[in-house]
């Protein structure tokens, strides 16, 4: 249930994101979801890809500061109130979240979550019968 997300350090200057996209594209690696957290000087690209290990290798070879980060992906219905329900569980069970981002496809929404404690988060979500996306499924999207 653990998803390997790529985290890439990017300077705030033009062309850097494209450089990552191009390298991954050339290696035929698809990006399923991504988000960028930014400050005035730099940003961190967080991206779920079809082949994390290979992507890590390629970006390292090209001198990017990059690491794999464990995240979980929650699947919930693409309708009002669905996210709130999930968040309330995490809140009640006291699972702090570092960051999250989401994308929806048709009737379902995928929410990528980086909890402080990945294992505990998975246990809690499963206990409450929430659906988690398998890494093999997510990488294929």
């Amino acid at each position: 249930m653990i998803i390997k997300q790529l985290s890439v350090f990017l300077e705030n200057k033009s062309g850097r994101l494209n450089e990552v996209a191009r390298l991954l594209g050339d290696a035929n690696i698809n990006m399923t979801a991504f988000s960028i957290a930014d400050t005035s000087d730099f940003g961190i690209l967080r991206v779920v890809v079809s082949n994390p290990e290979e992507a890590l290798k390629i970006l390292k070879e090209n001198h990017f500061s990059v690491q794999l980060t464990d995240v979980v992906c929650l699947l919930c219905p693409n309708k009002p109130g669905a996210l709130s329900k999930a968040l309330e569980i995490l809140d009640v069970e006291n699972i702090p979240i570092e960051y999250m981002y989401a994308f929806s496809t048709g009737n379902s929404a995928n929410i990528v979550i980086r909890p402080a404690n990945v294992q505990k988060c998975i246990e809690v979500l499963q206990k409450h019968k929430l659906e988690l996306v398998k890494s093999s499924d997510l990488y294929k999207i």
Binding site: S7, F9, A37, T39, F42, I44, R46, S65, V66, Q67, T69, E98, Y99, R114
Partner: peptide, 15 residues
């Protein structure tokens, strides 16, 4: 330069 020993996935860590 943010090399591996400095890198973190979290903005607050880098700040």
């Amino acid at each position: 330069e943010v090399q591996e020993q400095f890198f973190s996935d979290e903005i607050k860590e880098l700040q």
